[in-house]
Design a protein around this nucleic acid. Structure first.
Lengths: 218, 218
DNA sequence: AAGCTTCTCCACCGAACGATGGAGGCCAGG
DNA sequence: CCTGGCCTCCATCGTTCGGTGGAGAAGCTT
């Protein structure tokens, strides 16, 4: 079988077996694209990247062991020209922001069509960026948003866990007055007026991931 | 190519292109399983079911036009012996409960392995049910839980949207006193002590889906 | 050294919230 | 018919929250 010039070498990083196999199956029948490796978690991703030096890496953000954002950061330290396309199920994800900052070139929802996927891979390989208008808008909004300080983040996390100010004070070993100060500040930064709105905002934007709420935190 | 006896006829209903194609690709190479149809939303699912009368239907719960639960209910009205395997990304989903009540026989996370998938299809086709221990436990917990009344649900939804009691009263055209009554009641049923905890509980259990929070509601 | 941010804490206030114990009307199921 | 669930409303009470305007200490940058 003839190869058209040089194929685009692609690495697929995705922990959901079915999705990963679907991607590989789809891409391998496309002319000019070659899947050179697969990984099911972050650590594996780095190993595979070093081994295969792909042109483009399709990568899920939520993964075991090492998150997508971490993977992008680490790989770009040693290989700055590496190109990443971020895959996500949900589009309200705070991590997208970090991923794009970390150097991802494009962003795709898993509900994309095959054509979109292929077009994006080609575009990114050609050096372009590709961010859907909806995401671009969210990004712009996020840019204008002040970032929470570490302590404010701690307090927000406790709020989402349903703790009262007094409980938060105990948990963080600070006075209730200080808790209120942080809350006042973070409410402003999130653009909301009370702790309930802060909670939905935090979850919607992925600032506090839902999964983190199960473990009581040791 | 020889077929082993009769193949299990499978319908795949899933709106994410990549996932759907992945499933189809995986299943079609398995001996004894034949994908007879695909659907990308609920309405299509019903059409395809009528046309192909599959033995087993793999179905995602979150879909455009008609939800997975609705599809299961409608199809079982006309074809009670129809067998369903529910697919979901997230395992804290309230809909699983309804889906199993509606007659689904099994439940799989999208992170499953190929072997699990195939084994489950065979088991369900053979008339067995297949529910992972973790889900069974959650189900049991849910069973003991009192259900919210329609009105309590309305109030909860407004709470999650960040509305104050006064705003909820206006929105639902009832007095603030009544809002408080409902809140008191729903807090008890959810097993929480304040509106913030109610919010995370509602989102975690999927009682109020995150997607529903964007649209202001007409 | 001066300036910045962050974290810590204080006092005070009004508004919102949650808990409690009632009460009347409506409608479906026994 | 009448019991039970649901929805509606009332008053009261103590607690929690959020807003405001401070202030000192530590750390980083310039």
């Amino acid at each position: 079988m003839m190869m058209a010039q040089e194929s685009i070498r692609v690495l697929v990083v995705e922990d959901h077996h079915v999705v990963r196999q679907g991607l590989v199956a789809l891409l391998n029948v496309v002319d000019g694209i070659e899947v050179v490796g697969e990984a099911a978690d972050g650590v594996e991703a780095i190993t595979q990247f070093r081994k295969h030096q792909p042109h483009v890496t399709l990568i899920d953000l939520r993964m075991p062991r090492l998150s997508g954002v971490d993977v992008i950061q680490r790989i770009r330290m040693e290989t700055p020209q590496a190109r990443f396309i971020v895959l996500t199920t949900y589009d309200g994800d705070e991590d997208i922001y970090r991923a794009l900052q970390a150097g991802a070139r494009a962003y795709l929802l898993k509900g994309m069509t095959t054509d979109e996927l292929i077009a994006t891979i080609r575009a990114v390989h050609a050096g372009k960026s590709h961010i859907p208008p909806a995401v671009a808008q969210r990004l712009a909004e996020r840019m204008g948003t002040e970032e929470l300080t570490p302590r404010e983040f701690d307090v927000l996390e406790q709020i989402v866990r349903g703790k009262s100010n007094k409980e938060i004070a105990t948990e963080l070993e600070i006075s209730e007055a200080t808790v209120k100060t942080h809350i006042n500040s973070l409410l402003g930064k999130l653009g909301v007026t009370d702790r309930t709105q802060a909670t939905t905002a935090a979850i919607q934007r992925g600032i506090v991931p839902l999964e983190s709420l199960r473990k009581p935190k040791p």
